[in-house]
Amino acid sequence: MEHYSLKINGHVYETGAEPFESLLDVLREKLRLTGSKKGCDEGECGSCTVLLDGKPVLSCILMVSDVRDREVLTVEGLPQGGEPHPIQVEMTERGGIQCGYCTPGIIMSAYALLQENPRPSEDEIRFAIAGNICRCTGYSKIVEALQAAAGTPIR
């Protein structure tokens, strides 16, 4: 067991972990940051998406030892001053959430997109979340919610 100081959501978390443990398992099991979901645990479904130095990554196939000295942002880090992020508000208000399992991953992919491209087209939104599988919504209301969060016209 190694000792890790992890920079997550602007805080430093101290934890013991095996170097080969996934970031997702450390987040969920050691740090109890259970917002990131474990869907497939093999990098296919996107529900574990977090930001690493601002870029979306799949935390289930990332070893915790690769995260040293880097900035991790999880869905728990998005609200500011106790208020949910606009992406979270729109996803909730517009029916972008049904079972909710893909939701944290979708929100993190969308957040990364909007950081880079604040007014994306519908195609750019669909491309950005193509790695996040949703089985409930048919994506329509997710895309609508993200368009609303970006302030772009909704079809």
């Binding site: 029916g95 049904q98 409930c136 919504t137 048919g138 994506y139 209301k141």
Partner: peptide, 14 residues
């Protein structure tokens, strides 16, 4: 209605 649309859209995706 929003939930009904969500079910319809999800159904079509499946």
């Amino acid at each position: 209605p929003v939930a009904v649309e969500g079910q319809i859209q999800g159904g079509a995706a499946m």
